[in-house]
Design a protein around this nucleic acid. Structure first.
Lengths: 195, 195, 195, 195
DNA sequence: AATGAATGAGGATTCATTCAT
DNA sequence: GATGAATGAATCCTCATTCAT
């Protein structure tokens, strides 16, 4: 039943189906047909709307990064003071939404894709840069020159927890993940304060 | 002219070619033919020796993990005291050999593979468990009950630094990577000591 | 707002777009969507008016043949005597309009299509028959029994020059093309006259 | 039953199947699978040996041009004097082998392909140049400065007869085709001689 | 031991065509 | 009259894998 204005609906359905399919399968070997079938349409239509497989993946990636960015902004909006702001960023990173297995699988997939696709690489770098600059901005007031190093440490820890989650071998729950990163933050702030 | 004892030579050549090829290409899309050609043999022979693509990858993974394990053991052998032993593990993780771009690409690839392949998953989990138990063993004497958490933190940081390296966007050199992880360790030990 | 009498306008636009698109692309691989877009409408509408791709091509072919036929008739109308009439046909064949690259590309495309499509084949054969009978009619008075052979020769030369033009390798300008065919004609008439 | 040295056999089979298939179908729409099936192998093997569809077509083209070139050379080898040499070229062009419907269909197909493919274009241009220079070389002694023009005329006539043959509407047999071109030649030589 | 030969299965992509609105 | 929506069918191409030699 063709109607008008289907494009945004279809695009959204495809983006969600892509993430779900990456989660269901291993990340590799996800085909356009599988995604399209899950989204309830033909693979031809998926190509019609996105132009190709890579763009579908890219759109899914943008979606996830967009959601994450919105969560960070929302958390920052209600945070009071630099310490609270850093904590907000960390907590947003481990938000329920992001901690879903399929989202983590998608993340991992994007890392792999970023090694081949220029566009994917750029997108990921933007996320990393923004996270780093957000953290540095607030840490500067708390730890002075140590800010960049601490920001690196927090960022690495977040990514590390995620990749370990992707394996689900030695995994943490959300609270433990947050505690780990914030514990690191507090130790560093203590040390910086004592100098 | 069939030669005797070719098997180990061929297997090793294939394993090295696999890692090199993963590094040269993006990680994905590496074909058996490419690997075999790089190793100087036909793809049929590669199958003959390993049985299939997945097993070739698995062998490459085992090789990397084996080298890493040997480095850790070697470093531990000359380390004196728990603090030195933890430091040895961290330094071994960022050993030159492991920090090569192609090894990191292979590493990332294995993470992806571990989501599909039971065998790959088991292998990675063993590595994680061993690292964790090594760290906990020594940290126990330094930080008591905090040992598991700190071990998790160090492990996450190592993995996080690696995955960021894979993107080469915001990357660190070997010394910075070591400093980051050891800095975290020292803060935690300071905090644990003050209690 | 449905407009009245749109059909002829749409059809003409599609026919012209078809020829232009065949000229712009190589001849092959022209899609209905490309044609429709160039004609400023949806591909669905193109189908609505013509029924299918083949019929669109056929209409374009008819258009080109129609223009050519009109040019020949117009030239014949003012030609005086059989020699002048033959010359008029030759000149009309190399008329500026027909010598445009896109028309030649379309022409070549029609030859190819004529091997598959009955309708296209019929159309081309009608053109060839008419050209032949026109030429023979006038040549009869100039060269008697040699007329059919000379007509064949002139026809072949015209087609040959066109196909060589399509490649633009060893190509002639309009004047050279005319001179070539008329030179042949005069030699033949001389020879016929001497007997 | 895999044996060694299959490559040349397969390649030849594919080239012949390509020409046959182009002849059987219209020229357009010939697929690699059809060609491969006719050649008695899988389409994958066809790709393995040639790399892609275009190269298969190119090889078929080269084959036809090669056969034609050999025929011309053979005919020239036994021709005595410039007039006989020109006649030899014309006769070779209408050799039985070349006059087969499928070969003509392939020719036409190549003309179309030459508009898209650089390689095909180059190949055809080489053939045209060689024919032209062969003709001019001998005609120079017979008709002086008129040689290039006459060569153009003969070339155009040959191509024109071929393309008309492709349609099989108003077609000539081999003898008529030769007579047409040689008739043109003799008229031109007579005219040149009278001056 | 080693390989060229061979293929089946599948994957991305394109396109003419249909249909409900 | 006009179009966005939608798809089935096909096409080129790739690749892991098998097999006879």
């Amino acid at each position: 039943m063709p109607k008008l204005g289907m494009e945004p609906i279809r695009r959204e359905a495809l983006v969600k189906a892509t993430i779900a399919e990456i989660g269901a399968r291993g990340a590799l070997d996800v085909t356009v047909s599988q995604i399209a079938k899950r989204a309830g349409m033909s693979s031809a239509l998926a190509h019609h709307y996105f132009g190709g497989k890579e763009q579908i993946f890219l759109a899914a990636m943008r979606h996830i990064l967009g959601v994450y960015g919105a969560q960070v902004r929302a958390a920052l909006a209600v945070a009071d003071g630099p310490r609270a702001r850093v904590e907000a960023i960390v907590k947003a990173s481990f938000e329920h939404e992001n901690f879903r297995a399929e989202v983590i699988a998608a993340w991992l997939n994007f890392y792999v894709q970023a090694q081949t696709s220029q566009d994917a690489w750029r997108l990921l770098r933007i996320y990393q840069r923004r996270l780093q600059s957000n953290l540095v901005h607030d840490l500067r007031q708390l730890a002075g020159d140590r800010a960049p190093a601490i920001a690196q440490g927090i960022g690495a820890m977040i990514d590390g927890v995620y990749i370990r989650q992707a394996l689900a071998g030695l995994s943490l729950d959300r609270a433990q993940a947050v505690a780990l990163a914030l514990g690191y933050l507090d130790r560093e702030l203590d040390a910086a304060g004592q100098q």
